[in-house]
Design a protein around this nucleic acid. Sequence first.
DNA 1: ATTATTTGCAACAAAATGGTTGCATGTTTT
DNA 2: AAAACATGCAACCATTTTGTTGCAAATAAT
Lengths: 117, 117
Amino acid sequence: MSSRRSSGLATAPLLRRHAPVFAALGDATRLALMARLCERAPCSISQLTEGTPITRQAITKHLRVLEGAGLVRGEMSGRECLFEIEPEPLDEARDYLDLVAQQWDAALVRLKAFVEK
Amino acid sequence: MSSRRSSGLATAPLLRRHAPVFAALGDATRLALMARLCERAPCSISQLTEGTPITRQAITKHLRVLEGAGLVRGEMSGRECLFEIEPEPLDEARDYLDLVAQQWDAALVRLKAFVEK
DNA sequence: ATTATTTGCAACAAAATGGTTGCATGTTTT
DNA sequence: AAAACATGCAACCATTTTGTTGCAAATAAT
């Protein structure tokens, strides 16, 4: 086994699992929604719309994106839909960033060793 | 001070600093580029294109996006442009995710205390 | 029973994204 | 000097994203 490719990290399933999470977080409006859901526990769509310059429907769409990435979960309760943060994918994203940073550090060490040899 | 808003985290400058980083990571092709740059130290555009199903120009665009987010830095060396990972924004992104997760945990604790009271 | 709230759905428009091709330019290599 | 290689630039196309408006339906409040 010569390895070097398929070192994990760049493997297709991994990428397709993490990319959507980062994509969902890659928007100021959605990051703000996440932050808001961090502060006050379950929030309805109307509450989350309150204070923003954009429409309820726009907020709804953003929430669906977050939900699609698994970062958030909404449940109907009477006439309102209450949203909460789902911590797991967030943790996984963090772990992935850890791995990348860690692997990059290792690469730096290897590079330095190579130069000095 | 009643605080509750502007608890950090949801503050506009914060969002606008982190969102582009997550957006840049939110694409399988770009994540793969990051992973590849982790394994082998500096890489030219042609090297990075090698093995992918898409064009050099597409790869170039992705690299510019990563560079725009500060995740990567390219420098001309003769006729080729060598790219390297820039670890700082990666760390900041990780820290931000930490904060969100941490704040969410705190919210859960508060909620639980409230329910039990 | 009415009225007010909260949401969902659908159609639409504008802008951003991801990708292509073709060509020009600069740098090695032979 | 000529050929090969690596990149940059610009135009273009298709698709997705981000936001809108208008209307219908369900639930809660009066």
